[in-house]
């Protein structure tokens, strides 16, 4: 492992911006393009927002952001200890939202999948959810 980061934040929406800024700064050693930085910031924003909105349903808890750099690969985990997701497959469907009255778009996982190379969701109802994402950085502009 070339570098790693561990950040624990309160499940407050002001920490969505903080998480995006931290991951953007952390990945600079990979010499990313502006587009790659934006992609990763967007994916992290979606995962952290999901943890706050759905994991804790606006109650107080901790969201853990872990990131690692292995060669050209950026590995990210966003974990909460909230209510969990009973049906992960359904939650990952485009436009699915458990809170339609709140104007959530239901596109969070779709956006993560489009902006990252790999997305996995591990969840246990009542215990929490972990989103694992990977992306190769700086590979496209070398070709």
């Amino acid at each position: 492992m070339d570098n790693y980061l561990k950040l624990s934040v309160k499940s407050d929406c002001i920490n969505e911006h903080l998480s995006r800024q931290v991951i953007a700064t952390f990945m600079t050693s990979l010499d990313p393009t502006l587009e790659e930085i934006c992609d990763v910031k967007t994916a992290v924003s979606e995962a952290v927002t999901n943890a706050i909105v759905h994991g804790y349903e606006n109650l107080t808890g901790t969201v853990n952001l872990t990131a690692e750099i292995n060669g050209k690969e950026l590995y990210i985990e966003v974990e909460d200890y909230g209510r969990g997701i009973a049906d992960v497959e359904r939650a990952r469907e485009p436009l699915y939202t458990s809170q339609p009255e709140k104007e959530r778009s239901g596109m969070g996982f779709t956006v993560m999948e489009a902006f990252m190379d790999y997305v996995d969701v591990i969840s246990r109802p009542g215990l929490g959810t972990k989103v694992i994402m990977k992306k190769l950085i700086g590979v496209a502009h070398e070709m």
Binding site: C38, T42, E46, T49, E103, R104, S105, G106, G108
Partner: peptide, 13 residues
């Protein structure tokens, strides 16, 4: 400068 899917939900509404 930045928008995530929360913005998409707001626009759709």
């Amino acid at each position: 400068d930045f928008m995530d899917s929360s913005g998409i939900g707001m626009i759709l509404g």
